[in-house]
Every structure is written in C-alpha cells, then in structure tokens.
C-alpha cells in the first residue's frame, strides 16, 4: 500500500445532469505532491469532493489510505475526514471567532487538552507566517491571510493527505506563489498533497506531477514537469 489515493475507473454524474467525471483512474503515491488542472467545469472540484466524501461516485472504486470509500459507513465519515486536511477556495472560516479559535477547531473536535491545543495552534500559525495574528478576527485579514488561516487549520492536526481546491483562485500572483511554497514545505515533511488549480502559468514553474482533466477525463498525466533531480 504505497499509494494514498487510488481511483479505479471512477465516474460521477449529478442527478439529472451529464457525466462530470468519466472513467477516472490514477494513483497518488504516499508523500507525493500533484496538481490537478483543467478548465472550469472539467471536474477538478468534483474529484476532490469524491476524495473528501462530499459526494459518492456513480461508478468505480476509490481507495484512500487503504480504506475503500464505498464501504465506509455514514457515521464513520467524520473520523475519515479527520485524516484529511482540506483547503477551500472560499476559505470556509468561522467569522465569529478569532484566528486562533479557527485553527484550534480541529483539535477541539479531536478532544485535545487545552495546553496542547495552544502549542499546536501556534506551531501551525507559525508555519504559515501568521503567529502575530492569532487574536485577530478573520474579517480583518486580507484574502491571502485568510487563505493561510485555512491552511493552518488544515495542517494543525498533521493530516496524511492535504487537498486544496483552487487555493490561489482569490489571490494575486505573488501570494499565490507563496501559498504554493507553503504546500511544498509540507510535502517535504511527508504529507501527500493534491492541489486543484487552473493557474497553469504558476505550476509550470514548479517541479510536480500534473494531472490534467478535460471534459471529465484525464487527458494528460505528466509525472513531473521538470527539475525532478531538484526534488529528489
């Protein structure tokens, strides 16, 4: 079991709609980082949703970290999601709590002790460069900072897999690059990362595998764009 994600001829159609994903098959190795690209509507978000169990495939099998998602019972979904860190394009922060409380939430859910939470939250905020903003309310932060709060929340529990849906969609190029850099750092310490993005320009500068979706099918799967040696 050296792969973290394994899609086996997966198709998905929304009720009454056409096929969003058709016969998708790919593996993401443990510790691998990859980009999922394609135009809007190509099925990138849907693919991530299937991994996060926000949707179920119409056909095919998905295995994540050895767990076949088709056999996962509804009441076990929360525990399953706790293994994954998800980063959203719209951040999905809770705007009535401070940055600290937002990042602490996954730890509170898991029942960590109070002192432990403080330590871990500060470490996570530090890793995204927001340690000084722990008492701020999310509304007072810029888009890039809010996104980094979302990242800190996703990684505070040290997940085995990080999913990001258009994390740079709302950011200017400089911040986008910075965000990708944060993902790279997590990947270097062993976290598997799958990032859906249409910022082709940006990722072409980065030495990672690119899975390209077109019309719900994988049209290209480049192992590594370039500079493989560098990554090794």
């Amino acid at each position: 079991m050296s792969q973290i994600v394994h899609f086996h001829s997966v198709s998905h159609r929304y009720p009454g709609g056409g096929e969003v994903l058709a016969d998708i098959g790919f593996r993401l190795a443990k510790g691998e980082m990859a980009f999922l690209t394609g135009r809007s509507g190509a099925g990138k978000s849907t693919l991530l949703k299937l991994i996060a169990l926000l949707a179920r495939p119409t056909r095919g099998q998905i295995v994540v970290n050895g767990q076949n998602l088709a056999t996962l019972k509804r009441r076990h979904i929360p525990l399953y999601r706790q293994q994954i860190g998800i980063i959203f394009q719209n951040f999905n922060l809770l705007y009535d709590r401070t940055v600290f409380d937002n990042v602490a939430l996954p730890l509170v859910i898991r029942g960590y002790a109070h002192e432990d939470i403080g330590r871990r939250v500060r470490a996570a905020l530090d890793s995204v460069g927001l340690l000084h903003k722990e008492k701020a309310m999310p509304m007072t932060l810029s888009g890039g900072e809010q996104q980094r709060v979302g990242i800190a929340r996703a990684i505070v529990t040290k997940p085995i897999l990080l999913l990001a849906d258009e994390p740079t969609g709302n950011l200017d190029p400089e911040m986008a690059l910075e965000t990708m850099e944060i993902f790279r750092r997590f990947n270097e310490v062993g976290v598997s990362v799958l990032v859906a993005t249409h910022a082709i320009d940006l990722i072409q500068q980065l030495p990672y595998r690119v899975i390209h979706l077109d019309g719900g099918r994988i049209s290209k799967d480049q192992p590594v764009a370039f500079a493989e040696l560098d990554h090794e």
Binding site: P78, L79, Q83, N92, L94, I109
Partner: peptide
Amino acid sequence: DEIVVMKLIGAPDAF
C-alpha cells in the same frame, strides 16, 4: 454555515 464547516473538517455529530 458553521455546521457545514464543522462537518467539512470532520466533526462528528456528537460534537
């Protein structure tokens, strides 16, 4: 919205 976010980050129903 808060409940949706909680569910997204894996909060069990009891929580």
